[in-house]
């Protein structure tokens, strides 16, 4: 038996969200026709037979979850299985399904003053004790809409990373200190509204940064460090990342890093990492171990 939890978190684009809030009084057509998400499906490759069951639970304060069959027109009443209010749940079997979030605020709030009401909700629910709703906000899921509301910030400065804090901890196992093994924690605030949802960085061998140009590859072959990305999170939530090691022959030529790096430096890239930060920005923490 294999069990897991899939968190589906709304993605709020700052500028789009604010535009929608302004339009909400006139009834945005986006709200009347939410975009469904196909439930992820899992399969055990080596199994002779398997049964998959998905429990869909709505923990969002500000949205209902509409559950649809895997196929069929969304506007067809036969396609929609059920609508989950907060704390409601339903089960989906082997055939899978689709779900869509529908904002509650837009349905229940009077048209006049809708913008203020939405903003107040998100602000209050982030502070315990200021609203009756907080009696049920123990789950991190229920905080997600609140965080999205608080973090709607538009960047009007340059696209850059304001600061990067790197903490290096030398590794010691069974009392023996490994000469070059170390753990690294990188903390930075990803810029919001960047051109891409991905934050990228490379790890290069420091020695070659100090001695650019042709070097002695034979000397380095036996000492190339390996990098293991342990965890990547944004605002405390683990996020998707990709890590690729470079073969020796392709290290120098593959990456175009833009104007921030000295193009004269011939680095020996060990690893290139891409972190899916979204466009909201947020505190990115990356932990990795170098051996």
């Amino acid at each position: 038996s294999i069990a897991g939890t899939i968190l589906i978190i709304p993605r709020l684009r700052p500028h789009v969200a604010s535009e929608r809030a302004v339009q909400s009084g006139s009834g945005s057509d986006n709200d009347s026709d939410p975009v469904p998400i196909v439930l992820p499906r899992f399969s055990v490759l080596a199994a002779d037979s398997e049964t998959t069951s998905t429990i869909i639970r709505n923990e969002s304060e500000s949205a209902t979850v509409e559950v649809y069959n895997i196929s069929g027109d969304l506007r067809d009443a036969q396609t929609r299985r059920t609508v989950l209010q907060r704390s409601g749940m339903t089960r989906s079997g082997n055939d899978g399904g689709r779900i869509a979030l529908r904002s509650v605020s837009r349905l229940t709030v009077p048209q006049r003053g809708a913008v203020e009401h939405v903003a107040d909700n998100s602000r209050f629910s982030a502070k315990p004790g200021t609203s009756d709703r907080n009696k049920t906000t123990h789950s991190p899921l229920s905080l997600v809409p609140s965080l999205g509301g608080v973090m709607r910030r538009r960047r009007n400065g340059p696209l850059m990373i304001s600061s990067v804090d790197v903490a290096v901890t030398p590794m010691m196992l069974r009392g023996v200190k490994y000469p070059n093994a170390h753990a690294v924690r990188v903390r930075l605030h990803a810029p919001c509204e960047a051109d891409t949802d991905w934050l990228e960085f490379g790890l290069a061998q420091a020695a070659s940064l100090l001695t650019p140009g042709p070097s002695d590859p034979s000397k380095r072959d036996g000492t190339q460090p390996s990098v293991d990305i342990v965890n990547v999170s944004v605002d405390g939530v683990p996020v998707r990342f990709e890590s690729s090691a470079f073969a020796k022959q392709e290290r120098n030529a593959m990456i175009s890093l833009g104007p921030s790096l000295d193009q004269e430096i011939q680095s020996d890239w060990i690893t290139w990492v891409r972190v899916h930060v979204g466009d909201q920005g947020g505190l990115v923490i990356v932990d990795y171990v170098v051996n």
Binding site: I161, V168, F201, S260
Partner: peptide, 19 residues
Amino acid sequence: DVLVPTFALPIGRLEVTVE
């Protein structure tokens, strides 16, 4: 050698601490 990240974006400040 300590492997510290090199970012594709410009960085305002980089602070490295060895604990």
